[in-house]
């Protein structure tokens, strides 16, 4: 990894103080037990199969005034900002490309992760997330409409509490729609963490962490993220990490398909409210303009009378 010498790079071997706390020394079984209480309810009060899409989901557009389109998605403690910029010519390219391109960049805030500080330079995980995001967005954008141009999509993860890729895809879909980039369908995404025979839908960071640790036994574990174009019934990206059998993959796919569909009305609602709002605003502006014109006309009349009289 090349170092950025223009910044002050802290001592490389510094470690988080959390390493010396009791939490850090917990065994796999203890960590696993902590995820659920005795009634099988998760730490934040959700059932296993309950996503954060219902009450803990907040999204809006027009976050960044400089960008063509932007969105902010919040899944309780996961907070993601996305901005989309106008198409521009693809830099450093000699050949003409028939299809427009989407350039994605995912960046974690240095303070976003609970376990360690994120470096400024993009690390392997951020690069992998950027590639996954691009693959999820490519089938949904009408890329033939802007040949030889690229649309930039920037994701900034302010806080990471699990499911950051699905939050990023949802935010990017919303921001692209907000930027009026032509699209075939609304893209939504959801993830699931698998620990043994339990499936944690829309996992938190702690749940994802346990799911990525390999257990001693030969049981299933892993994280799956899937993005869908629900209206067209197409999967645009599917990412699996861990180790699991076919049956587990199939059940997870069915669950994720359903969850992706439940998100669509919420996204639609935000987009429709946007249209209604902008329509109302335009009407209001027109009315104000009319009022001003009338006031001016009245004044004109008065002056004309004065002139004629004088």
């Amino acid at each position: 990894m090349p170092l950025d010498y223009r910044r002050f790079n802290g001592p490389e071997d510094s470690v988080s103080y959390k390493r010396f706390t009791k939490d850090y020394l917990k065994s796999y079984d203890e960590l696993y037990k902590e995820l659920l209480d005795d009634n099988g309810v998760r730490k934040d009060g959700r059932a296993l199969s309950e996503a954060r899409s219902m009450c803990m989901f907040f999204a809006r557009t027009d976050m960044v005034s400089q960008a063509k389109g932007s969105a902010y998605v919040e899944l309780r403690k996961t907070k993601v900002v996305c901005s989309v910029f106008d198409p521009r010519e693809i830099p450093h390219q000699n050949e003409f490309s028939q299809l427009g391109q989407i350039f994605c960049e995912v960046k974690f805030a240095p303070f976003s992760c609970p376990r360690r500080r994120r470096p400024h330079a993009p690390d392997a995980e951020e690069k992998a997330l950027s590639v996954a995001l691009r693959k999820a967005l490519e089938p949904t954008v009408c890329r033939h409409l802007f040949p030889n141009y690229q649309v930039d999509v920037f994701i900034y993860i302010l806080e990471h509490d699990g499911a950051c890729l699905s939050a990023a895809i949802n935010a990017a879909g919303l921001a692209l729609a907000d930027a009026a980039v032509p699209m075939y369908d609304i893209v939504t995404a959801c993830s699931v963490a698998i620990v043994g025979d339990r499936l944690f839908v829309d996992p938190t960071e702690a749940e994802e962490h346990v799911a990525t640790i390999s257990p001693e036994t030969n049981s299933n574990h892993g994280v799956i993220t899937m993005s869908m174009l629900s209206e067209l019934k197409q999967i645009s990206d599917f990412t699996l990490i861990g180790s699991m059998d076919t049956e587990c993959v199939n059940t997870a796919m069915d669950i994720l398909e359903k969850e992706c569909e439940t998100l669509v009305p919420q996204i639609q609602k935000i987009l429709v409210t946007n249209v209604v709002k902008s329509f109302e605003q335009r009407q209001r502006l027109e009315e104000e303009a009319n009022d001003r014109e009338q006031a001016l006309n009245i004044k004109m009349e008065e002056w004309r009378k004065l002139l004629n009289a004088g």
């Binding site: 693959k135 089938p139 890329r143 299933n220 999967i235 645009s236 599917f238 993959v249 796919m253 398909e257």
Partner: peptide
Amino acid sequence: DTGGKFTTIDMNGPGSVAPKTLKDAINQGR
């Protein structure tokens, strides 16, 4: 006999697939 578990599934390319096709594909791959 052991093995036969999925450690990674990924999609490559600009297109998309229907859920059923994906399920068939991963079984065929296995």
